[in-house]
Amino acid sequence: MQLQKGMFRKEYFWKWLISVCGIIMIVITIVIGAFLIYKGSYTFTGFGHSIGEFLFSAKFSPNDSYSGSNGSVGAAVFIVGSVLTCGLALLISTPFSLAAAIFMTEISPKFGNKFFQPAVEIFVGIPSIVYGWTGLTVLVPAVRDVFNLPYGNSVFTAALVLALMIFPSITSVATDAIRGVPSSYRDAAYGMGSTRWQIIKNVVLPAASSGIMTGIILGLARAFGEALAVAMVIGKTRVFPKNIFSSTSTLTSVIASNMGNTFDGTEYNSALWSMALLLFIISLLFIFLIHFISAKGEKKANGKD
C-alpha cells in the first residue's frame, strides 16, 4: 500500500492544533483563578484585614484610597444576602422544575416534546438584563402592592426573578435525568400492578435522583453568579434583611454596582476583588459537589454501592 503524500504531516498538524486549543482553555482557567487569588488576597496581604473580618463582619466601608487600613471590609451582609436570595429562589423553583420535568417525560411526552421543551429552551436564551428589567417593571410594583410594602425591592423579589431564571436550567437537566431512566424499570413496576404515580414516586425519581440533584446545584450556581437582574430588584441597601420582604445586597450586586466607581488597587477595589474570589471559590465548590454526586450516582447504577 502506497502512503499518501503528506498524510503524516496532516495527521500531526491537526493533532497539534486540537491539543493547543484544548490546552489554551485549561491555561486560561488557571490564569483567571490565579489572577483572582492575586487581586482578591491583596485585601488581606496589602491592607492587613483578616479573613474573619471579611467573612463575619457586617461593617463595609472601605476607603477608596491606596494608603491604608482605616476602612472596614466586612462582607457578611452580602454573603447572607446571596445565600438567602439563592436559597429562596431554589425553594421556589425546584418544585416547578421537577413538576415540569415529570410532566414532559412521564405524563404527556408528546405534548412535552413538541411544545413544552421548546418553550423551556426559549427561557434559557433570554438575556438576564431582560429578566431584570421585567422584574423591575412588573414584579417590584406587584410585590409592593400584593404584600402592602413601602417598596417592592426585596429579597423575595430578587428570589422570584432568580427562580424564573434558573427554572429552565433545573428543568432541562432533570428532564434528561428522568428520560435516562431505562424503560425496563417502568415495565417491571407496571407488571407488578403499580399506578403511574407510584412508578414516578418509587422508581423513576429515585433512579434519576443524582441527575436531578446535579440540575438543582447547576441552578444554584447560576443563581449565585447572577448579578445584573438581582442588582436591579434587590434594593441594594447594605444592611441585613429583617425578613424576606426587606431589601439588602448580594455579593454580585455589590460588585456589579461599585466596580466602576473604584480605582484599581485601592482598598475598596481590593475588597470587591475579594468578593469575586469568594464567588469563584463557591462556584468551584458547587462543581466539585456535582462531580461527587454524579460519581456516586454512577457507582449506584453499576451496583457497587
Partner: peptide, 20 residues
C-alpha cells in the same frame, strides 16, 4: 388493569431489577 397485574405477574427478557 392495575388489580389484574397484581394477580398476573410478569418476568421479562432482560433481568430488570430496580437500582435498589
Amino acid at each position: 388493569a392495575i388489580l389484574l397485574r397484581r394477580r398476573v405477574g410478569m418476568v421479562f427478557q432482560q433481568p430488570n431489577p430496580f437500582p435498589k
